[in-house]
């Protein structure tokens, strides 16, 4: 699988990348939203995991920007939303995309990644 992980916390990004790679996936990473959007539009990813709070634009902006390439109902089969901010407002808005929503921190990184991979394979 070709995977893109968007996360500005370096250690989280690196850990996720490592675990995904161990499972035989091809992983790209981005710490900024605009950089990620460029990668999305120029590559075909099977799975895109995005954090919501980034330093330039938000994860929602990435989802909206991806609509140039994907139809809205295609988003759940491509995107996983990840956030440490689990206010009702944010989870509510994330739910509107029907995407898988991961609350940080997750208990077991291996289990979490396994779950995601089995869903998107």
């Amino acid at each position: 699988m070709k995977v893109l992980i968007i996360e500005d916390e370096i250690l989280i990004l690196k850990s996720l990348k490592m675990v995904f790679e161990k499972l035989g996936n091809n992983v790209d990473t981005a710490t900024l939203g605009r950089q990620a959007l460029e990668l999305i539009l120029n590559n075909d990813y099977d799975l895109i995991i995005t954090d919501l709070m980034l330093n330039d634009i938000s994860g929602f902006d990435i989802l909206e920007g991806s609509l140039k390439k994907y139809k809205r109902d295609e988003l759940p089969s491509r995107f996983v939303i990840m956030s440490a901010y689990s206010s009702d407002q944010i989870t509510g808005r994330a739910r509107e995309y029907n995407c898988l929503f991961l609350s940080k921190p997750f208990d077991n990184i291996h289990k979490t990644v396994d779950d995601i991979v089995s869903r998107f394979k």
Binding site: L11, I12, M18, V19
Partner: peptide, 22 residues
């Protein structure tokens, strides 16, 4: 918000350092 991200990152990295060959 500010602390959970770095601490989560540290925890995850340490987990991996202890269990995986890096």
């Amino acid at each position: 918000h500010e602390l959970s991200n770095p601490i989560f990152g540290m925890k995850m990295s340490l987990d991996l350092l202890m269990t995986e060959s890096i």
